[in-house]
Computed example of a mutant assay.
Amino acid sequence: MMMMNATSNTTNTSCVIMTQSAGNLLMSIYIIAFILGLMFNLVTIGPIIQQICRRNVLGIYLLSLSISDLLYILTMPLWIYYFSKNHFWDLGQGLCSLAGFFYYSNLYISIFLLCWISIDRCLAITFPLRVQAFRRQRYAWIICGLVYIFVMALHCLVLYLDKLSDPLDNQNRCYETFPMTERIAMFNLIRVGIGFLLPLVVISVCYWLIPNKVQQSRGVDEQGKRKVRLLSMGVIGIFSFCFAPYHILLMVRSIAFFSVGEKESCYFEQTMYIPFTCSLALSSLNSVVDPVLYVLASNGVREDMRLICCKNKQRQMTGSPLVDSKWKTRVTNLS
C-alpha cells in the first residue's frame, strides 16, 4: 500500500523539477488540514467516547477513525516543514519513513473503515433482525483491530521488502522519486483496485440500497430520511473529493509508464507533478471531513456536543443575576 517509489535505483533526480510556488501551495493545504483536523478531532473525541459508553457500535468506528486521523495529523508539521524547505528533507531517514508510514496507513484505514461503516449501516437497515446479534461492540472492536493490523502490516512488509532503510534519494527528497519502475507501476495499479475502486463499488451499492429501503419504510420520518441522504452524500463526497483525484492520477501515471516506458516518462511526470501532489495533499483533508460528517449524521454524538456546550454556558453564567430561570430549567432537562 505504501508508495514504494522511494528507493528506485534507476532514479533520474533531474526528471522532475520542483518549484517553490508548488511547495507554498502544498504547505498551505497541509496547514489548513493540520489546524482544522486537530481541532475537529479533539472536539469530537469526547462525545464519541460517551457514545461508546452507551454501547453505541457506531462510536467505536468513529473513535477508530479519529485515532487514525490524529496519528497522521501529528506528522503533518513534518510535511509542512519539508515543503517550506522547497522539497528538501534534512530531518533524517527515520522521520521520513515514519511520516510516510502514517500518511498511507491513515489513507487506507480511513477508506476501509468508511467502507465497513457503510456495510454495517446497510445490513442494519436492510436486514435489521438477522444482523442484530452481530452488531455488538465486541465485534466492532475486532473489525477495527483487523483493519488496523491488515493495513499497517502491509505497510511494514512494504518497508521491509523495498529496503527503505534509506528512503531519501540523493537530492534529499522524501517519498518523491521519479520516474517510477515497472514493479512500482504494477503495485500502484493493484492498490488502486483493492484500496480504492473495490471500496468505492461497495459503498456505492450500500448507499444505493439504504435510501431505497428507508424511502419504502413508513416507520421513518422525514428527518430520519434526510439524515440517511446526508450520510450517503457525505461518504460519496469524501471519496469523490479526498480520495478519487489521487487514485485516478496515480492510475494514469502507472498506465502512462507502461505505455511510454521508464526512460520516456520524465516529460509526462513533470506535467503531472503539480496536479498529482495537490491531489495527494487533498487526500489529507479526509482527517478534517471524517469527524464533521459523522457528527452531523449521528444524533447521539450531536446531542452530546450540544449538551457539553450547554453545560459550558451554564458554568459561565452561574452566579450571574442576569441568568434567566427558564434557561436554567432547560439546561437541567438536557442533563
Score class of each variant (00 low, 15 high):
V214H: 00
N24Y: 11
M4F: 03
Q50C: 03
H87R: 07
A297L: 01
S64P: 10
L74T: 12
L293R: 05
S68F: 01
G319P: 10
L98W: 07
Y72I: 00
N212L: 02
R55A: 09
C278M: 15
L98E: 10
Q316T: 12
A153E: 06
T126A: 09
Q270K: 03
P47A: 07
P77E: 06
C310W: 09
N41I: 09
Q314A: 13
N41E: 08
D304E: 15
K311E: 15
D169V: 09
D324K: 06
N86W: 08
T126L: 01
L107T: 14
L146I: 15
A33P: 03
S254F: 03
R136A: 10
F40D: 01
L250M: 15
S110K: 02
I149K: 03
R218L: 10
I32A: 07
T11S: 10
T177W: 02
E182N: 13
N286K: 14
T11M: 02
D304S: 12
Q93P: 02
I142F: 06
C156P: 00
Y207E: 02
V295M: 05
A22C: 03
P128W: 02
P291C: 08
I73R: 00
Q51S: 15
S217V: 04
F88K: 13
I109Y: 03
F101C: 04
Y175D: 12
W327N: 06
S165C: 05
G319M: 06
N106T: 10
I203K: 03
N9I: 01
E303T: 13
R315E: 13
P275G: 11
N286D: 12
S254N: 07
E262W: 05
R55W: 03
Q316E: 14
I60C: 00
L95Q: 09
L285F: 14
L249I: 15
Q314S: 11
L129K: 15
L200D: 10
R183F: 11
C278D: 05
P167T: 12
L42Y: 10
A6I: 05
N312Q: 14
L74V: 14
Q137S: 12
A140D: 07
Y267M: 01
L58W: 02
F276P: 07
S68W: 00
C53R: 14
L71T: 12
E176S: 09
M180H: 06
L25S: 11
G224H: 06
W141C: 07
M180F: 05
G237A: 08
A297N: 04
C310Q: 14
P47M: 05
C15H: 04
L157I: 14
F102W: 07
A124F: 01
G145H: 11
I52M: 06
R226P: 02
A33V: 14
E262A: 14
P128H: 06
S97Y: 00
C309N: 15
R136E: 08
L26G: 09
N86G: 05
Q215E: 08
N299P: 01
L157K: 07
G261W: 07
I194T: 08
A244T: 15
K85C: 11
M2L: 14
